[in-house]
Every structure is written in C-alpha cells, then in structure tokens.
Nucleic acid binder design. Structure first.
Length: 188
DNA sequence: TTCGTGATAGAG
DNA sequence: TCTATCACGAAG
C-alpha cells in the first residue's frame, strides 16, 4: 500500500510515480496508466491559479485527499492533493481495469477497452466517482486507495485539453499501453 | 466537427 | 445579473 507520505512529493514526482500503481475504488480496481501533474503555485492551468476555493481546499486538507470537481457540466474529474515542498494535484486520467470489470461495464453501458476507463471523465464514470467523494481521504486505513505496482516504463508529454502551460511535459503515461486515452506525442 | 451541460469567478 | 471559461466525450 502506498503511504500518505508518498503524496508529500511534488505533484510532478507523484504523477510520474503513480503510473503502474493500482487504484482501488470499492470493489473495483485498475492500474493507473495515465495521469497529470498540476502545481498549486506558478501553474496557470491549475485551479488554484484562478479559483480561491481551490486555494482554500489546499490549505484545509491533508496530502492524499481527493479533489473532485465537475467539468463541462457533466464529467467528474478525480485528483489527489499533494502537499509538501511543492503543493499541487495529480489528475488520474486512465486506468487499465483489473477488478470489478462487470460493475464498471454496467456503469459505462457495456463499453470495453479504452472506452471503459480511458479518459478522466470515463474513469470517474466507470468507478462511480462523484462530488460526494470531494474531500475524502484516499490514504486512510479504511480506504487505502493506492497500491504499489511494478516498475514500469513511463512517458512524459504535454497535458491534454488545456490552453495554458500546455507545453509543460507534465502528463505521464505507461509506454505502449492501449488503455491510455490519447496517444503520447513523442518529444522532438 | 459540433454541441450538451453546469459550476465558478470576475466584471458590470 | 451577465459572461467567459473550462483538466470532456458522444454522436454525426
């Protein structure tokens, strides 16, 4: 199991190291194959840059807390708060399903492959993550949402779907994995 | 490519 | 109050 202090690393370190780990959500689980880092300071793409409520959230919660919000009026996004030398968030963008496949397919309308949990909105839909999980502690002994995985080959490239600071190589994905939502564009 | 959908925050 | 913006995804 991954301890809370894992999330005292910088968001970039956390995001890179989380690839290959297992995300456990109730009866379901999957290997994290894609995630992104957002820095609470100096990162124009991070919610803390424009939202007082996000800065307040960082101040009031511990490392390893879920930051969940609704985007485009319909998609829940699951992030983990990192607090330490550098505060920030890790957006979980895709998993390769392991346990609870049937439950995920039921929630997703019998989708398979990348369409099941590849993409931040699809992932929360498959796992049943919603706003009620906002602020919940993902590292508590009751929850223990993250399990360590084997060492894997991780690719870094630009974050998806943002307009500001999109060039920072802060998206991390598992090399060659078909459940990654968008194929990484290799660095020049 | 287009469009649905709603929370948030800043301007008026 | 009004408006812009937004870490998306399904259908066409």
């Amino acid at each position: 199991m991954i301890p809370r202090e894992f999330f005292t690393q910088s968001p970039v370190e956390c995001a890179r190291a989380l690839v290959g780990c297992e995300l456990v959500w109730g009866a379901c689980s999957g290997m994290v194959v894609e995630c992104e880092a957002y820095a609470a300071t100096g990162d124009p793409a991070c919610h803390t840059f424009t939202r007082p409520s996000a800065r307040d959230f960082v101040a009031r919660h511990r490392a390893g807390t879920a930051y969940v919000y609704l985007n485009y009026g319909m998609h829940w996004m699951l992030n983990v708060l990192t607090k330490g030398v550098e505060d920030g968030f890790v957006l979980i963008r895709a998993i390769e399903p392991r346990r609870g496949l049937r439950a995920m397919q039921k929630r997703r309308g019998e989708k398979t492959g990348r369409a099941l949990a590849g993409g931040p909105g699809r992932l929360t839909s498959a796992l049943g993550v919603t706003g009620v999980h906002h602020g919940s502690d993902l590292c508590s002994s009751a929850r223990r949402c993250f399990l360590a995985g084997a060492a894997v080959d991780v690719l870094a490239d630009g974050r998806i779907g943002i307009s500001r600071a999109a060039e920072l190589p802060w998206r991390f994905s598992l090399a060659g994995n078909s459940f990654v939502s968008v194929r990484p564009r290799l660095a020049a």
